[in-house]
């Protein structure tokens, strides 16, 4: 694949550390702001449509998800890799969330409509063809963006730790699992 496309699936060969963090935090801020207007929150690798969200909730969930992933990944890196810098993990993980900006704009366009398709609508058989189409398109795009985001997170982990092969894959899967569990537990406890 050409170097031009490397920006899509592995920008960390060119940018990492504080620079990546700077770019990532700007993108993440835009994602959070647009997500807020589209009633969507982002935490960890999850995206959820929540009607009438507050600014505090939108920002804190995004920050919590990022902080947990960075912390768990950094601890794993310290335990299993050499020469790891905190700013590389922080920067690459922050930048790896850039596909979510597309998700936030999608949510802005269709979030409120999606939120209106609730379980009662299904029970009362009021779901229209356009509702189904919207759910399908939104679902497919969400999965694509989710896979893209996880691929970027994996590249972030790989570049920051210089781990390879099965060890890298297994450790990344464990890191993701632990991060998601901790994020969910903290959300349940705090909110």
């Amino acid at each position: 694949m050409s170097n031009k496309w490397k920006w899509v699936y592995n920008p960390f060969e060119k940018v990492a550390g504080w620079k990546a963090f700077g770019i990532g935090i700007v993108i993440l801020s835009i994602t959070t702001i647009v997500g807020y207007f589209g009633d969507t929150v982002f935490y960890g690798i999850s995206v959820k449509v929540v009607p009438n969200i507050t600014w505090i909730l939108a920002i804190s969930l995004q920050a919590l998800g990022l902080a947990v992933t960075v912390a768990v990944m950094y601890i794993a890196a310290l335990l299993f890799a050499k020469h790891v810098r905190f700013q590389d993990i922080l920067g690459t993980v922050t930048l790896s969330k850039y596909p979510l900006i597309l998700m936030s704009f999608l949510s802005l366009a269709f979030g409120r409509k999606l939120a209106s398709i609730d379980i009662d609508k299904f029970i009362n058989n009021e779901v229209t063809f356009s509702d189904y189409s919207l759910l399908l398109v939104f679902g497919v795009i969400s999965i694509i963006l989710l896979v893209w985001s996880i691929t970027l997170l994996y590249q972030a982990f790989k570049i920051s730790t210089n781990l390879k092969g099965v060890k890298c894959g297994v450790l990344f899967a464990v890191v993701m699992l632990i991060s998601e569990i901790i994020t969910y537990v903290l959300i349940t406890v705090i909110y």
Partner: peptide, 13 residues
């Protein structure tokens, strides 16, 4: 080299 710090460090490793 126009590369990120960890990429260069990985090459050295």
């Amino acid at each position: 080299m126009g590369l990120s710090y960890p990429t260069v460090r990985n090459l050295l490793d």
